[in-house]
Write a protein that binds this DNA or RNA. Sequence first.
DNA 1: TTAAAAATGCGAATGATTTGCAAATATACC
DNA 2: GGTATATTTGCAAATCATTCGCATTTTTAA
Lengths: 144, 144
Amino acid sequence: MTRTRKKILEILETAETPLSALGVEARTLSSCDTATVYRSLHYLEEQGLADSFVLFCREHGTERYYVANSAKHRHWFHCEVCHRFVDLGECRVEPLLSQMEAATGVRIRSHTLYATGTCADCLHAGQQAASRSHQEGEYPRQGE
Amino acid sequence: MTRTRKKILEILETAETPLSALGVEARTLSSCDTATVYRSLHYLEEQGLADSFVLFCREHGTERYYVANSAKHRHWFHCEVCHRFVDLGECRVEPLLSQMEAATGVRIRSHTLYATGTCADCLHAGQQAASRSHQEGEYPRQGE
DNA sequence: TTAAAAATGCGAATGATTTGCAAATATACC
DNA sequence: GGTATATTTGCAAATCATTCGCATTTTTAA
């Protein structure tokens, strides 16, 4: 493995949350070219050293986020207000997916699950705002 | 609601699978401009009449797919070989998400879950190919 | 060390999605 | 119903993440 790829893998491993390609590039202090970052991330994913998922948010648009695959597979929450990720813990949908596989005859190779909404911090900030302005209402819950 | 938006909603409602914006445009027989299709899909989603999720696949890259929100929220499987969607049935992760909400203090507004791999049809085609060529192996199962 | 293979940097290209603006359509009001 | 106002549509140009071609540099294998 090349120096560049090692460095990028290390960035993913030490990050506490998923990173976009641009986030990774920033953490190399722009010592790697953008194209190289993308190619390295693809490489790491092919090698099973990284996982990724695509997420859309108003602020950042559609971007792909990467996490190191060193620990157990986890799922993430993305705050629509502050745009930070919150760890939702280890994957617990495997059993459901196995049932779906059995029911439909498909062979699942990978899955993507994430949730979006408002994180605890922003929720508190919002409630304070609500008590001041009486404007805050309930967010309807919807799936995707 | 305008004629255009009605037509696009109807396209989503009669589609058996999620559609990309370009898929929707094709089904209007290109009678709507691309920008209008995108704007209408955004409108329908804002109104809660449609849901969407972003999916990456080798063949089509990163695209956003839309489904009508008339029926119960469902989850989808995307075949990496033939690129068709397979219905995985009604959402069954709500209870898990509620637990995650309680554990982390976040407020979930929406979630995305889909799986990718090989559909039953392509699996059979692949097995036939395997019995001829002795090339087909196991796909490692991984999450995202 | 040394040739061949693979990776990197740079700049240009791609492709989905968005935006500005003028024309067309829908809605509100008389 | 008919007109004024607000909203939507079409077209073309712009964005933005991501990818690609190609010359140069780094790795790998012998």
